[in-house]
Structures are given as structure tokens and as C-alpha cells.
Design a binder for these strands. Structure first.
Length: 494
RNA sequence: GCCCCGGUGGUGUAGCCCGGUCAAGCAUGUUACCCUCUCGAGGUAGCGACGCGGGUUCGAAUCCCGCCCGGGGCACCA
């Protein structure tokens, strides 16, 4: 009888039923108003993976239509972030470079009687929209609208005085369709275009035009935008329908991505900066020791859905660990060390491979009975107990000692079953190191977790000093760490 | 208040469109054992879920209705 087949889970992202190979265009639409974060990276991965599967093209398009929010350094954050992720985009543009084109579409709508200039105060308009009533400007005529529009472009009106609205559907139960704003005056220098423009298109209008201009065939992005409104605008402009697939935000437990929550942490110096390893920014993720490949594989594994979700970091860590395990060197790190003197110890030069499979080279450590070992191990043992110094020899604990001076006696080289094994360093071939131990930035109740960073002091073997910043190794019996700066590591996970 | 979208174990998902093969798969987590000179990796086994209530049906995680809960939208933000 044949054994029952083992079922497999989903492998890769679900296919897009309406995608055609070779005729597939997607886009990454970041607003350069903050540093790129892990959610951008995951959404970018999804788009890039589909681009590859359907042999299409990928746009990197900066949605920089609010000069008050946009900053130059953030454009670069996304470029370097996507590059780090291994995401290659086929085309790049800034929406701010298409302003004249966008003006033409605004004008077309006004001329067609679909748009009008409105000077109602925001709160009045809000009230009217809520009640479904037209404002006094709605039917003032194309000529009047055109002359105001011209004046707006000629900078004759101040910010906050006039906007261009669409004649939407005042009766719609979807309130966002009730005469939405498509262009407004923002008198503030733009990092790219300077003070050339003061009239700026709003997102929902601009994105519809840009997707058409970029020949986008599929929209795959997180779900904080209104499909209905964009469809309405698309229809008014005579653009074909585009396939939209929305997915909800990628949240990680204890690590929100919202700038509103993160900025105070930076400003109040509760974290070291936007690149603090506890932060969800790409810089933070890198410092945590997560590899781009791990993030990529993780994204494909979890996929995307429309339901709310909060990933446990352990899901990502597991992927990261499996990628790291076969390629990282092992170095002995002793947290909270205590001295151990082994009596009658033979002088021994221990040659130990950097990896259990022996493929990453080896180092030799000279020993003479003096060691540093973890205080927690000594604390947990009883006097008289036998343990083993890994790759070296057995020791019988004679005395735990007071003030961190344990004593032991040499008990042979032969491996003994079921003995505790301790990593060790020698006092004269080791150096101090501090390790940043991380946990959730925010507690369950949404407040900052002051315990989110703990500094563990310890000593690491001399050979570790040959590594450069950015390298990731495993400290056996402790975890995978990334060398952050000389003398400082970040514990990514165990 | 109104509109839209969701609710599968501790966590993330597959299945739902086209009802039976689902006494619900995979991953993560956790427990035990094996392996390993790491508390890592690998192996084996166990644990653990269809939001609630009705209905249709021989049969519902899948279809219908009501309820509850969560998220998003209703900006001169994106």
C-alpha cells in the first residue's frame, strides 16, 4: 500500500488570475516623507516578485505632491532601501516632474464641466459634503472656473483660498465621492521643483493620471486608499479600469510603523535615532541583523491578505536563522563572565573550527588553566558537578567561589555523556564587548517599552577582533549577533 | 453617523469563488525524544483553530440571513 502523500503548504505568492506575461506593469509609489521601513520592503518585494513572474516592468514612482512633507533625503532612503532588498526597478520618476501634465488633466476636467473652483472654507465644505448639498460654487460656470484656475496657476491666490473640486456624486453613500478636492495651493518650496509650482494635485487624482501615464496594469498596494474615488476619477478621465489588489498593512508585534508613533521616540531620544535596531526602518532592520534574503523569503511565505494581521517577529527570525546558520562563523562569547581556575590543567592549544561542519576555517587558542565562563552557568551548577569546556576538556567544579572566582579541577579529555557544556575564553586572548539585547519597542498597551533595550556586557575571544562592522556571526549558546561598531554587537535573535 | 473590507490554533497563512477527498494542510511557537562537543541547525512524535446564532442541504470552514468584533475611508495627507 502506498503511503499517503504529505500535503504541502502554499509555495510562493498566489498567481494573479488576470495577469498576462510580457504585458504586466506594476509600481512602487512611496511618498518621500519619511525613511523607508520594513512594510515598504515587503510591499516592494511582492510587486517585484510578480514583475519577475509575469516578465513585466516595475516603476519606482515618488509620490511627492505635498512639498510640505517631502524631503530630499527620503528619496534616497527608498532608493538605497530597495537596492538593499535586491529589488531592481525598470523605470523611475517623480510625480513632481509631471505637474504640467497633471495641470492639463485638471483643465480638461474643468472645461468638460466636471471640475470647479471652490473657495469654501474646509469646515463648511465638510458640512455640506456630509449633508450631500452642493456649495455655491458648484454651478458657477466653466468660464468663471477657468479664470480662477488661471489665477491660481499665476500665483494670484493665497494658500487656503481656492481648490479645484470634482463634480462627484453628492448623493453617494460613499462620502469620498462627494465632490472631492483634486488640486490645492501649497505655497512652500518643493525639494525638487523649488517654488516653480504652488498648485499641487491631490493624491487620488494624481495617482489615477500617473498610473495611466505609466501604463500600469496591476496595482498591488496596502489598503489605505479609496478604490471608489479613484475609479470615479478614472471614469471621468476616460481611462480604462485597472486591476487592483489591496492588502492590509504589515504590522510586527510591538513595532508599529506609523511615523506618528515613532517620531516622538526619536525626538525624546528614547531610541538612538531612526536607525535604532529596534526601529522598523530599513536601517533598523539591517542593524538588527536581518538579511534582505530573509525578508524576501519571509514576505513570500506569509503572502498578503486583506485581513488585519500582526506578525510575530519569531516568524521572520526563523527564516533569518536558517539562512544564517550554515554560513556564519561561531565565536565564543561569555556574557557576565566569572573567572574559572582549573587546577592541574594541562597547557593546551585548542584548534577549533569556526563552523561545526568545518567549512569556515579554524583558530587556535592557547590555554593554561585560566578561563572566563558565564556566571549563570556557574550559578546553576552545584559544587562537585562535572562540566565540559567546549572543544577542550572536562572540569569538576570544586568551588563556585565568592566575588567571581570559581575553582575547578581537570577531569580528563574524554567526552562524558550528559554534561553541561560551556563556551569559554581565556583572559589573555579576549576582549570586552557589549551586546544590545532587543525586545518589543512598544508594550501591549501601546506605550513605549523602556525595557526594549538592554546592554549585556561580556567578553569575546580575540579572533572576533578581525571582523568588520556589518558582519554577522553566531555566539554559541547565546544567539546570532551583528557587529554594529567596534566593541558593540546587536543580538538579532537566538 | 454613513460606506467599504476582513474574522481559520499563541502567531502567520492554505482551503472558501466551483459544498463532500477537511475527524482542516504548511510554517512559526511550544513539549518530548533522537542527532550534534551550542540553549543554533537537522530529524521524529505530540499540543493547538474554522467569531457567535439561525437557515438551506443527505452533507457547510465553504452558500444565505442576523449579530458581534477588528481594520480602512468619508482631508486644502499620501
Amino acid at each position: 500500500m502506498a503511503a499517503p502523500e504529505k500535503k504541502e503548504g502554499r509555495v510562493g505568492l498566489l498567481p494573479l488570475e488576470d495577469a498576462v506575461k510580457g504585458e504586466f506593469v506594476v509600481r512602487l509609489p512611496p511618498e518621500p516623507s519619511g525613511f523607508m521601513h520594513i512594510g515598504h520592503a515587503m510591499a516592494g518585494t511582492i510587486n517585484a516578485v510578480y514583475r519577475d513572474t509575469y516578465e513585466g516592468k516595475l516603476w519606482l514612482r515618488f509620490e511627492d505632491t505635498n512639498p510640505r512633507k517631502v524631503q530630499k533625503r527620503y528619496y534616497e532612503s527608498f532608493r538605497t532601501g530597495y537596492t538593499w532588498m535586491g529589488i531592481k526597478w525598470d523605470y523611475e520618476k517623480n510625480v513632481s516632474s509631471d505637474i504640467d501634465l497633471l495641470y492639463e488633466y485638471v483643465q480638461t476636467l474643468i472645461e468638460a464641466g466636471d471640475g470647479y473652483a471652490c473657495s469654501c472654507p474646509a469646515d463648511l465644505m465638510k458640512k455640506l459634503r456630509f449633508e450631500g448639498k452642493p456649495c455655491e460654487h458648484r454651478d458657477q460656470g466653466v468660464e468663471k472656473n477657468m479664470s480662477i484656475w488661471d489665477e491660481m496657476l499665476k500665483k494670484k491666490h493665497k494658500e487656503g483660498t481656492y481648490v479645484i473640486r470634482l463634480k462627484g456624486d453628492l448623493a453617494s453613500l460613499d462620502y469620498s465621492l462627494r465632490d472631492p478636492n483634486i488640486a490645492r495651493i501649497i505655497d512652500y518650496p518643493h525639494p525638487i521643483t523649488g517654488d516653480k509650482y504652488v498648485v499641487w494635485p491631490t493624491y487620488d487624482f494624481e495617482v489615477v493620471v500617473e498610473d495611466q501615464v505609466c501604463s500600469v496594469t496591476h496595482i498591488l498596494r496596502s489598503s489605505e486608499f479609496h478604490v471608489g474615488l479613484q475609479d470615479m476619477i478614472r471614469k471621468m478621465l476616460g481611462f480604462p479600469v485597472i486591476s487592483v489588489k489591496q492588502f492590509s498593512r504589515f504590522n510586527f508585534k510591538g513595532t508599529p510603523v506609523a511615523k506618528r508613533l515613532l517620531r516622538p521616540l526619536v525626538e525624546e531620544k528614547l531610541v538612538s535615532g531612526w536607525d535604532d535596531p529596534r526601529m522598523p526602518t530599513i536601517e533598523g532592520v539591517i542593524r538588527r541583523g536581518i538579511s534582505a534574503e530573509a525578508l524576501r523569503q519571509f514576505t513570500i511565505q506569509v503572502g498578503y491578505t486583506q485581513s488585519e494581521h500582526t506578525f510575530d517577529w519569531s516568524l521572520l527570525f526563523s527564516v533569518n536563522r536558517k539562512l544564517l546558520d550554515p554560513v556564519t562563523k561561531r565565536f565564543y562569547f561569555v556574557p557576565d563572565p566569572v573567572k574559572l581556575t582549573v587546577e592541574d590543567a594541562p597547557r593546551r592549544d585548542a584548534t577549533i573550527p569556526f563552523h561545526p561542519l568545518g567549512k569556515l576555517g579554524e583558530r587556535t587558542i592557547a590555554t593554561a588553566g585560566q578561563f572566563l565562563v558565564p556566571s549563570s552557568d556557574i550559578g546553576q551548577m552545584k559544587e562537585g558537578q562535572v562540566f565540559r569546556l567546549i572543544e577542550l576538556y572536562n572540569v569538576k567544579l570544586v568551588s563556585k567561589g565568592t566575588d567571581g572566582n570559581a575553582m575547578g579541577t581537570y577531569l580528563g579529555d574524554e567526552m562524558v555523556q550528559d554534561t553541561r557544556k560551556l563556551q569559554w575564553v581565556t583572559p589573555d586572548a579576549s576582549e570586552g564587548v557589549e551586546v544590545m539585547e532587543l525586545s518589543d519597542l512598544f508594550r501591549e498597551d501601546g506605550t513605549f517599552n523602556p525595557e526594549s533595550l538592554k546592554i549585556r556586557l561580556g567578553v569575546v575571544e580575540k579572533a572576533f577582533g578581525s571582523l568588520g562592522p556589518g558582519e554577522i556571526v553566531q555566539f554559541p549558546r547565546y544567539g546570532f549577533v551583528r557587529l554594529d561598531a567596534p566593541g558593540r554587537c546587536v543580538l538579532g535573535h537566538n
